[in-house]
């Protein structure tokens, strides 16, 4: 499993991504956030500490996740992204939609 989901704190779920975050992860990533209990999660943390590469489908996946959880009022936070990934988030104006730390 390239993607692992853990309950890191009360009403907080951390999704730890693998080495690459691209189209091959679509199914796995979708399951990672759709299977979480709606009532027991107010905050998602997506951890990019292991991720070296992502393509534009990663952005599509994140937007789909944001749309899915918007109606359940959960916030999404992106952490530990490297310089290159931060540049991608900045160019695609993701810093306006997500909380990037």
């Amino acid at each position: 499993m390239a993607i692992s989901t853990t309950k890191s704190a009360s009403q907080e779920v951390t999704i730890l991504l693998g080495d690459t975050f691209d189209f091959s992860c679509v199914d796995e990533f979708r399951r990672a956030y759709e299977q979480v209990d709606h009532a027991d999660c107010k905050r998602f943390v997506i951890d990019f500490r292991n991720t070296q590469y992502m393509d534009s489908s990663a952005l599509g996946m994140l937007i789909n996740m944001e749309k899915f959880w918007r109606e359940h009022e959960a916030s999404i936070c992106i952490i530990n992204a490297n310089q290159q990934l931060k540049k991608i988030f900045s160019i695609s104006r993701f810093d306006k939609k997500f909380n990037i730390e």
Partner: peptide, 23 residues
């Protein structure tokens, strides 16, 4: 350039959505 990047993101979002439907 911003418009094009936004276009990429939109295309990716719809594509991922399409993949979800396909699945």
């Amino acid at each position: 350039l911003d418009t094009y990047v936004q276009l990429f993101v939109d295309v990716s979002e719809k594509s991922v959505q399409a993949v979800h439907k396909i699945q």
